[in-house]
Design a protein around this nucleic acid. Structure first.
Lengths: 135, 135
DNA sequence: GATGAACCCTGTAGCCGCTATAGGGTCAAT
DNA sequence: ATTGACCCTATAGCGGCTACAGGGTTCATC
């Protein structure tokens, strides 16, 4: 509950595995609240900032786009909102990831087929791969 | 072998499934050779352009980055080069796709676990998902 | 009290592969 | 003569950072 330790931006970065520039970027786009400043104009973060940035980085680690994270943050700030909305955001992200996987699996099998065309030909002129990519 | 049909940019786009703006972009970054122009300053493409753009789009469809495609194009222009280099580019792309798939599969299982936490809680205040994302 | 290293500040531009917008010109059919 | 579909250039924007330029602050060491 101590919220006045006064983390520097570098300390916050280390605590959360975030680049300093990324933290400033999050502040600029309103993902992270504006911190107070020291006498020397350094940003000074509280425990609340550490928790919030930790949340953001975990969600980013799961591939959530920043806009979805913004929505999740808004929900955490309003504890009376129905939990469904959180669930929906998570499911949306799950489906997005599943779509990407199946797209990439199709690519993989085509690339695999393509890679196995390379049999014997020594020069590009008789390369089956180039042939397969050509009209 | 007729190379003087004079496709307009729109016709080239339709023939290859490419947006007009994308064709101009490819020209600007040197992926597609500069075409001749009509009296009215319209771009005029030959069959060779159609084939080249077709090649580019197929490779893009397999997820090759434009830099790799640039390298593939350079190889197709030099038929004496060893075929290995083509093979290497294809394998690189295959490995890149495989890495992405396994990354996404990890995400999928984590998201799946997360989605299944949403049991019972009606409000964000007792949402297990938010809890799981929080420090 | 001077120096140096490690940190911090702002602002701007770049990455990829397009896509969108603004503000025009050309061409073919009616 | 006018419409409407096409074409032209140039510039800015998307996401999510990353890099760079050109400074200021803080703290330890000499």
């Amino acid at each position: 509950m101590s919220t006045k330790l006064g983390f520097s931006i570098g300390a916050l970065g280390k605590a959360t595995g975030t680049e300093v520039v990324t933290i400033r970027y999050y502040e600029k786009i309103g993902i992270l609240p504006i911190p107070s400043r020291t006498a020397g104009n350094y940003r000074s973060y509280s425990d609340a900032h550490v928790r919030r940035l930790g949340f953001v980085r975990r969600a980013r680690g799961l591939g959530f786009p920043l806009e979805a994270i913004r929505a999740l943050l808004a929900l955490t700030d309003q504890p009376d909102m129905p939990c469904e909305e959180v669930d929906k955001l998570v499911l949306d992200q799950l489906y997005a990831v599943e779509r990407k996987i199946s797209d990439l699996e199709r690519l993989r099998s085509e690339l695999d087929r393509l890679a196995n065309q390379c049999r014997g030909g020594r020069h590009v002129s008789d390369c089956r791969i180039i042939e397969a990519l050509s009209p």
